[in-house]
Amino acid sequence: MAIDKLILIWQSFPSLLRGTLVTIELTAGFLGLGLIVGIPLAFGGVYGNKFIAVTIISPFVKVFRAIPALVLLFLFFFGSASFGIEMSAFTAAILAIGFRSAAYQSQIFRGAIQSIGVGQMMAARSIGMSKLKAIQHIILPQALRLSIPPWTNEYAGILKDSSLAYAVGVTELMRQGRYIVARTFGNALLVYLVCAVIYFVLVYTGNKLLGLLEEKYKIPGYEVKKGARKVLERI
């Protein structure tokens, strides 16, 4: 009986691998979109026009953080059809969770920017840098470094959230698992355990890699000002 189980795992391997790949693609898409939209949102919120910050940035962040990821997925997926836009489930997922990640990432970067002392900006302006140059050369490099720990948290959260794409039919890891169970009338417990292991490995590896990144770009001697390592909340 045990052999049967092992054979089952062996045969399911390709499907699981495909699913894992899609999971990784989704994660990369979410984080990428989140980064591209999140950074401008953060800098806009801190250095930009107060009016825009209050009327556009703040509501965007509040709404995308308050609505559950699953609901956002449905809204983008079914909404696109309602408005006559052709959109694959994959695309809908990337947009929904990507924008959501942007809302969270903007808060991460905003926190990092605000923890950089105001003296840095003053010094940059005092040698004649424009606000834009000061942000580009002085604030941004420091903000990115300070953001790595909380961003690692976001990475883990997003990777796990990719499982939600199951609900709109994307063939990521969980859905592949479901198909395997259905196809083989197999042991659901085993299949989903294997899925769990794969997720764990992805999260663990990612955390380790981001940890290396943090080490590599650490500013020598510079202690994170906010005291001991904050226990990072899930988002």
Partner: peptide, 20 residues
Amino acid sequence: VIRGTPLLTQLFLLYFGLPS
């Protein structure tokens, strides 16, 4: 382990997996 795996997977394990 719990923090390293998705909530959805955990729910599936309990609802679809335990019957096994």
